[in-house]
Design a protein around this nucleic acid. Structure first.
Lengths: 171, 171
DNA sequence: ATCGATGCAAACTGTTTGCATATTT
DNA sequence: AAATATGCAAACAGTTTGCATCGAT
């Protein structure tokens, strides 16, 4: 799952023109923003591995990752917003906290969400898109995206014994 | 849309045995909890009309609704949790805040979410359920429910000119 | 040198909780 | 009377923001 440097961005799915770093730089330039050490470090850290994470986890990762460079909580939040706006990350709301995942060069997909271990399992479905678009059309609704989360219990957890991670989960 | 008293709970879709009040009382009893004025008032208020609402809106509604009876914010939150656990309400997370809707006697459905006016439009799709279950089966995942939110712009809003309700919306 | 970015801490939003008091059974 | 519910205010978690300072252009 983990890969050393951010080099292969095809991630087995969609070919993209440039690395997340390059793409982010482009975005920053276009907005008159600057390429700083912390933004650079954050992008590197975020795209090192494809996974789901929240702001706190990224904050922790970055402090472990970049040897000397510490990035403040505020900057993490600010940069996450920028990465979303730049189209590099996708944001979703899960159980009250914001969770992020790669968007750039990554195909549309949905999730199975295990209520016990909080794991997210990705899946793709063409039919789903078709249904979505058909329904939208019926309502003259212009779709910009969708989010499907199927919640339940993953295979692993249904073997272990039932202990919740948190009492009342939003799905 | 609005109806005077809570009498017809078939709501045109699914027949249910008893009113939300009765159902809630049952739940409370089974848990050794008590039927209080504020719980009664809240249920009445919640089921007066089928709509989506958050805790603050309910708090406001209840203060307008029950003439003398004020219900505290804490009790609103506590009762909402109970209503969800009793199976009367469904909770979803939309843009950071919790939004509730009728569950009891109301069929499974999903939503189109207008990013401009924040309106939720309900729709039903059998195929969707089929896809959901097929995918889950493939992953040996035990489904307890799902949430699909298709976001975009509703018909009305695509006529008006583009002004967002909030800058960065979670979907 | 200029103007945007960062870090810090304080502010905020939505929600939860401890505790003394009020209510239901 | 016993035990649960309520209201209040304080505590919380996650996130945002004002401001002085730092750093990229």
């Amino acid at each position: 799952m983990s890969q050393e440097a951010s080099q292969d961005f095809s991630l087995g799915k969609v070919q993209v023109a440039s690395s997340p770093q390059e793409r982010f730089d482009e975005y920053l330039q276009s907005k008159g923003k600057r390429t700083t050490q912390q933004r650079r470090a954050l992008v590197e850290c975020v795209f090192e591995e494809h996974d789901h994470f929240d702001a706190d986890e990224l904050l922790e990762m970055i402090s472990r990752h970049a040897e000397g460079a510490g990035v403040s909580r505020a900057t993490v939040y600010r940069t996450l917003d920028e990465l979303v706006e730049a189209g590099l990350l996708r944001k979703m709301d899960l159980g009250g906290r914001a969770v992020y995942e790669h968007d750039y060069g990554y195909p549309q997909h949905d999730h199975l969400y295990c209520q016990l271990c909080r794991k997210l399992i990705e899946f793709r479905s063409e039919e789903l898109m078709a249904i979505r678009d058909a329904v939208a059309a019926k309502h003259s609704f212009r779709v910009t995206g969708h989010r499907l989360i199927v919640s339940g219990v993953c295979e692993e957890c249904s073997h272990k014994r039932h202990r919740r991670h948190s009492p009342l989960d939003l799905i």
